[in-house]
Design a protein around this nucleic acid. Structure first.
Lengths: 128, 128
DNA sequence: CTCAACGCTCACATCGATGTGAAGGTCAAG
DNA sequence: CTTGACCTTCACATCGATGTGAGCGTTGAG
C-alpha cells in the first residue's frame, strides 16, 4: 500500500510516516516511480511506534527496541552484540521504573476519585 | 530553602524550577528581596513532577493531576467540579492504557533477552 | 488532453521542554 | 568597600515531534 492508505489505517499523518522513516524506524520499499510501498506488517509496526512515542520514548530508543518486538520471535542472536544486550537491559529497567511510577500515580488518582465520589454522593443524599 | 538548594536536592535545574512555576505546577513564596522560598514538601512535589514529565505527560495534565497526589489526602471535594472529575477519569484511563502498553513491551523485551541469552549461553558451551 | 488526487522533496513554522547568557539586585565574608 | 556566590527577569537558542505549504512528478478517470 502507499503512504496515504497507511496513514488512514494507522491514524498517523503522512508527514510523520516519512519522519519515522527518516529516523530509521521503518524502511518501506520504493515503486519504480519513487512512491513508498508499505506491506501489511507495517500497519502494526507503525501503531507500535505511535504507542511508544505516546508513552514518551524517543525515537532513538524505539529504534533499539523495535527489533525485539516482533511476534514470530526471530532469533537475531548472532547479530546481537553485548553492547546491545546491555542497552536493552538498561531500557528494560527504565521501562519498569516508568511503569511503576505511572501505576503509583494512577492508583493515587483512583483513591482520590473514590474519596471525592463518595463524599459527593453523601452530599447528594443530604441535599435531596 | 532557596532555588539553588532545591535544584541540588531534586536534580532539577533552576531554569526548570522556574519553568514549573510558570506553568502553575508549584507556587513558592517570595522573600522580601524577591527570592523564591521553597518548603520541605516542595522537594517531593518537584520529584513527582519530574517523574511525570519523564513519563511523557505534558505539564497541563500534570497540573490537573497534582492536587490529588498529595499524601494527607485532603478532601478538596467542595471545589471539585464535575468537569474536573470527568477529566481525571479520562486521564486515569489514559494512564492505564499507557501502563498496559509499556508493560506489554517490557515483557516482550524480557522474552527477547531471555531467548538471546539462552542461545548465547549454548554457544559458549559449544565453543568452549 | 486535462484535471483531481495522490506522491515526492525541501524548507520553514510551531510547540513543549530545556539550556545559556546578559544585565542587574542582594548579601555575607574578608 | 569589594568580591563572589547567590538571586532576579528577559530573551534568544536548541532539540524532538509535528504541521504546513510550495513546487513538481505520476496516474487514472472523464
Amino acid at each position: 500500500m502507499r503512504i496515504g492508505e497507511l496513514a488512514e489505517r494507522t491514524g498517523v499523518s503522512r508527514r510523520l510516516l516519512r519522519y519515522y522513516e527518516e529516523q530509521g524506524l521503518i524502511t518501506p520499499t520504493r515503486s519504480p516511480n519513487g512512491y513508498r510501498e508499505y506491506g501489511e506488517p507495517h500497519v502494526d509496526v507503525v501503531q507500535q511506534i505511535k504507542g511508544l512515542l505516546d508513552a514518551g520514548l524517543p525515537t532513538r530508543i524505539i529504534q533499539q527496541l523495535l527489533p525485539c518486538l516482533d511476534k514470530p520471535h526471530t532469533i537475531y542472536a548472532p547479530f546481537v552484540t553485548p553492547e546491545m544486550i546491555v542497552t536493552l537491559q538498561h531500557e528494560q529497567a527504565r521501562l519498569s521504573e516508568r511503569i511503576e511510577f505511572l501505576t503509583r500515580n494512577r492508583d493515587a488518582i483512583a483513591d482520590y476519585l473514590g474519596t471525592v465520589l463518595t463524599v459527593s454522593e453523601r452530599r447528594e443524599q443530604i441535599t435531596s
